[in-house]
Amino acid sequence: MHAGTLTVDLLLGDVHSLKGKRSIVRPLVAELRRTFDVAAAETGHLDLHRRAEVSVAVVAADAAHCRDVLDRCERAVAAHPEFQLLSARQVLHSDED
């Protein structure tokens, strides 16, 4: 069994409040969950209105599938014009770790 995580750091566009931030981040998290069947949540920069950290987790029988799902999630996030992807970090774990 393998588990993988993806953490992305985002710079939001023309957002001036935490309410405006939620209107961008919540649909992204819902899209990731629905489209890729992963666990996803906003995990950082909670008090900043122009920054967001979103994390994704996936569990699979093999590492290649984990990497594939996480790569597709990263590309989906990067494709959104509402924000800029500042960084992305993937970590893979196996039951042998």
Rank of each mutant, 00 (worst) to 15 (best):
G4D: 12
A30L: 01
E96D: 13
L86A: 14
C66D: 13
D95Q: 14
R50D: 03
R51K: 07
S55G: 12
D9L: 15
V8I: 04
A78M: 07
E74Q: 14
F36I: 04
L85A: 11
H2R: 12
A88V: 00
T35C: 12
L85Q: 10
F83S: 01
V77D: 10
G4M: 08
A79E: 10
T7D: 08
G20K: 04
R75G: 11
S17T: 10
L48A: 11
E82T: 07
L86E: 15
L86Y: 09
A76T: 08
A78E: 11
D95E: 15
L28G: 01
P81C: 02
S94R: 04
A76L: 07
E74N: 07
T7E: 13
E82K: 03
R33E: 06
V54C: 05
P81R: 04
D71E: 15
S94C: 07
K21V: 03
G4R: 06
D14T: 07
A3I: 15
L6A: 06
D97I: 08
A88M: 04
G44M: 07
V56Y: 02
A79F: 08
E42G: 03
Q84R: 15
A52M: 08
G4L: 07
H45K: 01
L10I: 06
A61C: 13
L70V: 12
F83E: 00
G44C: 08
V59C: 10
E31Q: 13
L18Y: 05
V77W: 09
D68C: 10
L10N: 04
G20S: 03
R22Y: 05
D68T: 14
A40T: 09
D14H: 12
E82M: 06
R50P: 00
Q84V: 13
T43L: 10
D37Q: 15
F83L: 04
C73V: 02
E96Q: 14
S55N: 06
E42S: 06
D47E: 14
C73P: 00
R72L: 13
A60W: 05
A78N: 09
A63E: 15
L32V: 02
V91D: 13
V69Q: 04
S94F: 06
V15M: 07
R51Q: 06
G13K: 00
L70H: 09
E31T: 15
A41Q: 11
M1V: 14
C73Y: 00
A41G: 09
M1Q: 14
R75T: 14
G4I: 04
L48P: 00
H93K: 10
V54I: 12
L70T: 12
V77Y: 08
V56E: 02
D68W: 15
R26P: 03
V59P: 02
H65G: 08
S17I: 05
T7M: 09
V77E: 10
L46H: 14
D37F: 13
S23M: 08
E96C: 07
